[in-house]
C-alpha cells in the first residue's frame, strides 16, 4: 500500500489499496471524493473559497470552486463514475481566536461553506464533515473502504 501525499494548494487521485493524505490542515479544507464501487478517490487541499474574487487565480488547486472541479475531473479521468461520487470534508478551523470578521477570523468557515456549495452544485453528496473549531487536522482517505480518518494534536483519531 502506497501513501500519496497532497500538499497545500494541491490535489491528487488515489486507487485502492493506496491511501491519500494531507498533513496539518488549519483553516484550509481537505476535500475527499471517491467512487465506492471502483474504489477510486481523490483529495484536494484548498486554501481560499472563491477564485473569482482574486486577480491572481492561476493555481486552480488553491480555491474551493476551481479545486473541487479539477479534483472531480481528475477522479473521473482515472475511471470513477461521476454519478457515484460521494464526498467528505474536514478542516476550516479558526486557528487564532481573533475577534471581528477579519480574513483570519472567518476564512475557515467561508472555505467550508464554499466547499459544500461547490459539491452541491456538482451533485456530489456530502456524506460527512469535521470542520470548524480551533485546531489543526491531518486527514487520510482510504478509497478501499471510503474511510476518512482525522488526526489532531492531543485527540483520539476520528473516522468519518
Amino acid at each position: 500500500m502506497a501513501t500519496i501525499k497532497v500538499g497545500m494548494a494541491d490535489l491528487n487521485i488515489c486507487k485502492a489499496p493506496d491511501m491519500i493524505t494531507t498533513l496539518g490542515l488549519g483553516s484550509c479544507i481537505g476535500i475527499a471524493v471517491y467512487d465506492p464501487v471502483l474504489k477510486i478517490g481523490g483529495l484536494a487541499h484548498i486554501m481560499l473559497p472563491d477564485s473569482t474574487q482574486m486577480r491572481n487565480n492561476s493555481n486552480i488547486a488553491k480555491f474551493a470552486d476551481t479545486g473541487i472541479e479539477e479534483l472531480v475531473k481528475r477522479v473521473v479521468m482515472a475511471g470513477a463514475n461521476k454519478r457515484r461520487l460521494v464526498a467528505k470534508i474536514a478542516g476550516g478551523a479558526k486557528m487564532f481566536q481573533v475577534s471581528g470578521l477579519s480574513t483570519v477570523g472567518n476564512v475557515g468557515e467561508r472555505n467550508a461553506q464554499a466547499s459544500r456549495a461547490k459539491l452541491k452544485q456538482l451533485g456530489i453528496p456530502l456524506l460527512a464533515e469535521d470542520t470548524g473549531l480551533n485546531y489543526g487536522r491531518t486527514v487520510e482517505l482510504y478509497p478501499e473502504t471510503g474511510e476518512f480518518r482525522i488526526k489532531a494534536v492531543g485527540k483520539t483519531i476520528k473516522s468519518i
Binding site: G26, S27, M47, M95, V104, V107, Y135, G136, R137
Partner: peptide, 11 residues
C-alpha cells in the same frame, strides 16, 4: 501542528 498554524499566513 506547524502546517495548520502556517495555513494562516499561507492564506
Amino acid at each position: 501542528m506547524a502546517a495548520a498554524i502556517l495555513s494562516v499566513p499561507a492564506i
